[in-house]
Design a protein around this nucleic acid. Sequence first.
DNA 1: GTCTATATTTGGATAGAC
DNA 2: GTCTATCCAAATATAGAC
Lengths: 197, 197
Amino acid sequence: MIGIRGGAVAARRAARMAEIVAAAWELAHEDGIAGLTLHALARRLGIRQPSLYAYFESKDALYDAMFADGNRRLLERLDATELPPDPRRAVDTWLRVFVDFALDDTPRYQLLFLRPIPSFQPSAESYALAEAAMATLIDVLAAAGIDDPGDVDCLVAVVAGLVDAQISNDPGGTRWVRHLDRLVGLYLDDAARRSST
Amino acid sequence: MIGIRGGAVAARRAARMAEIVAAAWELAHEDGIAGLTLHALARRLGIRQPSLYAYFESKDALYDAMFADGNRRLLERLDATELPPDPRRAVDTWLRVFVDFALDDTPRYQLLFLRPIPSFQPSAESYALAEAAMATLIDVLAAAGIDDPGDVDCLVAVVAGLVDAQISNDPGGTRWVRHLDRLVGLYLDDAARRSST
DNA sequence: GTCTATATTTGGATAGAC
DNA sequence: GTCTATCCAAATATAGAC
């Protein structure tokens, strides 16, 4: 069976890598994304630190796998979301899914959307996943009549501002994000007003 | 003269500490706020690394001095600003001063308003300076009829969202902050509408 | 693929002389 | 207040046996 369609060993290896990434997220949750160390990760997995190098050639390669994993989860969640037919409500729904995703796991949000590890730059393959998620937002906004790049920028910045404030100043609460729909509605109304003239 | 009014030596010492802080900002500008090291700082000053401990008992104490220094600069700038009599324009002016301050020196902005050094928590004295700056914004907003804490939260989050996006994605440009006045105006109009009913 | 052992680097902090 | 000399700890990464 060995080597037939290259499957069995590769699958086992992929499964092990997924376990490692899952353990890395656990640690990131406890000590922050920047506090993750390979020693602690190996300890958690019951192996020795150098053994990790059989799977990831560097710590940044591990971060890259986490980055890709996080983006895949976001894409899955967006995929599993039934968007309402009304374009405006579709925007609200998309953004709500995104904010829930962000608040569900703040180290993940930080790795995907902030830049907490200066040495880490996502690979082209991983970055493509992030662009795919962004593309779904572009689509939903376009359907709601938002096609001006400046408007997209503003909406993204407003949502990020609320999420960042929420995470930094009131973790677990809703003090900032509860204004999401109102703020977005305000902006969309204004954009519609501007484009109708 | 020694000891008379406790002045001369204390002044020299304070001046030297200010030099150290200035050099620390230079390095933060080059290597990022988290990339600052005491060895590099001492090298820049032409002294040895342990000598810094004559002025700061720890690296975090140095960060605290930088945090206080940054907030003093912000307060100075706000103090030097002539706010227009019209309350709405006063808000615009205050925010414009703030955004200019933020974009003038991004490591400084990060140290004051983001939390780039997990181990660092500002001392009570330093934090009081940050609160004093925030208090001036509260005043200006109150004069413009914004007294609901939720509205203050929203405006702060929106401005932070624009500034963070600007710094992260288009440093040195204006792609995001050029929307500042429009977004703030939009929000203030809505707030006025809400409070008039 | 996992191990032991170790290299290497970095950087914060302390001791004690001057 | 500054120096030399160290210490200590953490953490990434590599070499080579099994």
